[in-house]
Nucleic acid binder design. Structure first.
Length: 287
DNA sequence: TTTGATGT
């Protein structure tokens, strides 16, 4: 009787130590994952308030960028990456092939979009990521988890012009840029729930937030561009505040910002410092 | 087709 009690106590102690290791290990992993994500993203990765199935997501780590993946929308709700001007882009290789991403769990294959009338629209862009972060990062931008259905006129013209302006015009003006971009869906989930390319829900618009992260006086430009565009519109037509994007996505961008700086950066539409007018009407490459 | 993607 006494011996079995002793053995039980020993087993209990071993179990306790094992649990301690698991908890400590999980905590360490969580801490390092957070650390890694924060290293990638100025002022914290996007968060959401409360429990909403449509904003719930998990973070996929790639070379050069992070993806906030939603298994409900079957879309990247956001991608986040940093850019800087580069001297030499001649080392960039040819366009890699699109490839399925098993981490999404959903079977999104490279031909899921075929015949749908929608392009496989990059969220983290091929050119900028390749130029700044190298070949393996470029390959990652062709994962299907980085795609969202875009109308050709948007993807190949208006959106392309915006991405080209980010890399060729905005990046050289600042040391570093933080970019967050992603889709916007109709307000009521059920209205759009069957509007899909394969399993992938079709957005009604896309946003892009570009921040020049100076410590005390960061600058930001933000855009919302709808699917239905001709493609040759001035970029400036689509300027919005970050608050508007937060309202339409349900996400909270840059959660680590102090309330005072956040109020100005996210609530006010300020274009000083970006010289947007120099590129707003610049034609695209592919028209 | 050198910053976009499709379909032949």
């Amino acid at each position: 009787m006494g011996r079995s009690l002793l053995r039980l106590r020993q087993q209990g102690r071993r179990l306790g130590i094992a649990v301690l290791f698991v908890v400590a290990g999980a905590g360490l992993w969580e801490f390092q994952e957070r650390q890694h994500q924060d290293d990638y993203t100025w002022m914290g990765v996007p968060t959401w308030d409360g429990f909403h199935p449509t904003t719930f997501h998990r973070v996929l780590r790639n070379d050069g960028f992070l993806v906030g993946w939603s298994d409900v929308r079957v879309n990247p709700l956001w991608v986040s990456y940093q850019l800087e001007a580069v001297d030499d882009d001649t080392r960039i290789g040819s366009r890699p092939n699109f490839q399925a991403d098993w981490r999404t769990l959903w079977p999104i294959t490279t031909d899921s979009y075929s015949g749908s009338g929608y392009d496989r629209g990059h969220m983290a862009p091929n050119y900028a990521i390749a130029a700044v972060h190298g070949r393996s990062a470029q390959v990652d931008t062709f994962l299907m988890s980085n795609m969202s259905p875009q109308r050709p006129n948007l993807n190949r013209q208006l959106w392309q012009r915006l991405e080209q302006s980010v890399m060729d015009h905005f990046a050289p003006r600042f040391d570093r840029l933080q970019v967050i971009t992603g889709p916007i869906f109709p307000e009521h989930f059920m209205d759009n729930v069957f509007n899909r390319v394969g399993f992938v829900e079709v957005p009604e618009a896309f946003y892009k937030i570009i921040v020049a992260p100076h410590a005390d006086a960061p600058l930001a430009l933000a855009f919302i561009m709808p699917q239905d565009v001709r493609g040759n519109e001035p970029l400036a037509n689509y300027l919005v505040t970050i608050n508007e994007i937060e309202e339409r996505t349900g996400l909270n961008f840059f959660p680590n910002l102090s309330p005072e700086i956040e109020a100005v950066l996210e609530g006010e539409l300020r274009t000083q410092g970006w010289a947007l007018e120099e590129v707003s009407k610049r034609p695209g490459r592919f028209q």
